[in-house]
């Protein structure tokens, strides 16, 4: 394993915002090494043997939870999945009490997904375990941004100077915030696009270009990242109808053909086919959506290794 910019400064991964470009590069470089592990007949390395990782998923998740669990198992960690339903949370236990009770069983790392922004920090401030944010409300989803960057680096060859357009429900997306932090730190050019009702105030102060047209977002882009439109937004004063959304911001092959040669399309999932993305695009030659999922395991292995395993090896 590479040890150039050898370690992360924090015991936790709460977001991309606190990371330096060197730390981001370290994680991505480390993930490259781990990607190969998943392609072996015996998909396992002993890096986290004897370590306990708790996956504390207080909000529904399939992709992220499964991806973390696979990453943990491929690193030989002991894993335990805890979800809000059917647990003490339903009996009214607070997040802090839940976490402190789990902590009393000495986990080395806690992976948390929660609908409320800042909850991973709440745990990180109080617990000795390493806390990994697997998505906190509309705040951050750092491992998603890292796997996106890994995929862009693999497909486009670099991050610096790459033109990336993120389209859709910018206001309610943690993926977009983590991606903006990461991509601007790595000197990529980021455009966000969507109707003004789905763009949060002062988003341009995060260092991005704002457009309200899908065609403008596609023009000159190397990467189009589509965001899911939450179906429940319909009729909530943000978009008049899903039909109208598809007509104005739905990504179709016709629109993509006006874009740059070699343009790739990404989506963090879960997709709403026929709402933000046409099936011909999702399943078409532009799509790297399933590669993102594959890379997610490698990136999460890198994060788990750097937070939990690297310092053990050095000791």
């Amino acid at each position: 394993m590479r040890t150039a910019s050898s370690a992360l400064r924090s015991k936790d991964l709460l977001g991309i915002e606190p990371l330096s470009p060197e730390e981001i590069t370290l994680i991505l470089d480390t993930a490259e090494g781990f990607k190969e592990v998943s392609e072996r007949p015996v998909k396992k390395v002993p890096a986290l043997r004897g370590q306990l990782v708790i996956n504390l998923f207080m909000e529904a998740s399939t992709r992220t939870r499964v991806s973390f669990e696979i990453a943990e198992k491929r690193l030989s960690a002991d894993t335990l999945n805890f979800s809000a339903s059917g647990s003490s949370v339903e009996k009214g236990e607070t997040l802090i009490d839940t976490a402190e009770n789990l902590m009393a069983m000495h986990p080395d790392m806690i992976v948390i997904r929660h609908k409320h922004p800042g909850s991973p920090k709440m745990l990180a401030d109080r617990l000795p375990a390493s806390v990994i944010n697997a998505g906190d409300g509309a705040h951050e989803h750092p491992t998603q941004a890292l796997l996106d960057a890994f995929t862009i680096r693999e497909r486009v060859g670099r991050l610096q100077g790459t033109n990336i357009s993120i389209v859709g429900d910018i206001a309610h997306s943690r993926v977009v915030r983590s991606n903006i932090h990461l991509l601007t730190k790595m000197k990529a050019n980021v455009t966000v696009a969507g109707p003004p009702t789905l763009l949060p105030m002062d988003i341009e102060k995060m260092g991005v270009r704002v457009v309200h047209s899908l065609d403008k977002a596609i023009e000159g882009a190397d990467v189009i990242m589509m965001l899911r439109i939450q179906l429940e937004r319909q009729g909530k004063l943000t978009i008049p109808s899903l039909r109208e959304y598809y007509n104005t911001f739905g990504l179709t092959p016709e629109r993509l053909r006006r874009g740059k040669e070699g343009l790739i399309v990404m989506h963090p999932g879960p997709m709403n086919r026929g709402v933000e993305i046409a099936s011909d695009v999702a399943d078409g030659p532009w799509s790297v959506i399933l590669e993102q999922v594959t890379n997610g395991v490698a990136v999460r292995m890198a994060v788990l290794y750097l937070l939990g395993g690297a310092h053990m090896e050095g000791a």
Binding site: E17, G118, D136, H139, P200, M201, K205, M206
Partner: peptide, 15 residues
């Protein structure tokens, strides 16, 4: 407060 920091933190804003 709704503004740059609510956007940054992903917390719902009060304009």
């Amino acid at each position: 407060h709704e503004g740059y920091y609510s956007t940054l933190l992903g917390l719902a804003g009060i304009p």
